[in-house]
Design a protein around this nucleic acid. Structure first.
Lengths: 195, 195
DNA sequence: CGGTGATTCTGAACGTCGTTCAACACTAAA
DNA sequence: TTTAGTGTTGAACGACGTTCAGAATCACCG
């Protein structure tokens, strides 16, 4: 048997949770809805997952894998480091636009107070930043490893902020084309030659 | 009487809520704790405020006023638009660093599903962006009003993203000096002359 | 097959939360 | 003092995540 019954049920619950977050958002996720959707009893959720936090982290794990794949796809088609960085930023925006609730869950979720995010999940987040270290080091070959890591985090955070606040529509609902143009302009401006 | 009893109680509840968010964070805010701290019954909270959302919005309103004042103070001491923008970014970082929980509440809070954020509160957020429109228009006098507004939102979002992800320590706990240096470097790079 | 120990599944029950509301207390004009 | 109106109270409600004792199921052996 390739999958035990236990694993099948765990996957059903994970699928149901993912669908709920995708369609209704993280805050609409309910243990009772998920288990009803998965066709099992309420308590079975706690056999499959330690608690709701770990269930959400598992959904986020899937999302991060898809996001990471999208970014790798996007950057694979580029040669010059500046084009790679611009393409990565636009791919990041596109993923967030097309998966708004799943993407938001990556950054909106908070663990119960006092419980740290597991290391394996932090490392899954770190691969996003790792993706931009390559082209960044090509642009600044003289940077040492630590500075490069900080710089990559900074650039990622800036792009992330632009995508996040525009998708939240916190200030005003924005036209997607305008956002894409603004992000593109911003990255180009940051990377432009000072010759 | 300068303040009715009603207004005094409302202020007491607001103070208690602010103190709770400041010391323990938004997610630790409880109606029962707040009213006990304010010295009134649980139900009185709902005489003073429509619900918890509006109470949180009122706390955020205070925080935004303080943040806005900090930004105006910071930019008042500058003449050149680039220095103004850099100073604003660093002042924003400083405010977030010194008021982590209150500042996080500004962006972490979500209304109940289906309930929109009141217009008066959206406008309180907008003043942050308005603060950078001035120096930005000095740098790009040829931009029309709409583009300038989008550009201001973009620049704000980028700086915000850098501050937010570093204060959350999502990827790794960061040295404050490193963050300040990175933010400063980033803004300078974005604004540097292309002569 | 039947027995038996371990494992998994179940859903009622618990504690906590925001919110409501009928009863009560207070105030101020008649 | 009476009375109408307003403010205050905290028990109660429904929804939530989580637990756990009992029921069901499984795996192995005689």
């Amino acid at each position: 048997m390739s999958e035990s019954k236990r694993e099948i049920l765990k996957k059903k619950i994970l699928d149901a949770a993912e669908k709920c977050i995708e369609t209704q958002g993280l805050t609409a996720l309910r243990a009772r809805d998920v288990t009803k959707d998965a066709g099992c009893a309420l308590g079975s959720l706690y056999n499959a997952f330690e608690d709701m936090d770990l269930l959400i982290l598992s959904v986020n794990s899937r999302t991060l894998a898809r996001l990471h794949a999208s970014l790798k796809d996007a950057s694979a088609s580029q040669e010059a480091p500046k084009e790679t960085l611009l393409t990565l930023a636009l791919a990041y925006l596109e993923f967030g636009t097309e998966n708004p609730n799943l993407w938001a869950a990556l950054f909106d979720h908070r663990m119960q107070p006092g419980v740290p995010v597991p290391r394996w999940h932090l490392e899954e987040h770190a691969v996003l930043i790792a993706e931009i270290i390559g082209p960044l080091s090509q642009l600044s070959p003289n940077l040492d490893e630590d500075t490069l890591a900080s710089r990559a985090r900074t650039v990622f955070s800036a792009v992330h902020g632009i995508v996040k606040l525009s998708l939240e529509g916190r200030f005003v609902a924005l036209d997607p084309n305008t956002v894409r143009a603004e992000l593109s302009e911003f990255v180009s401006q940051y990377l432009r030659e000072a010759d």
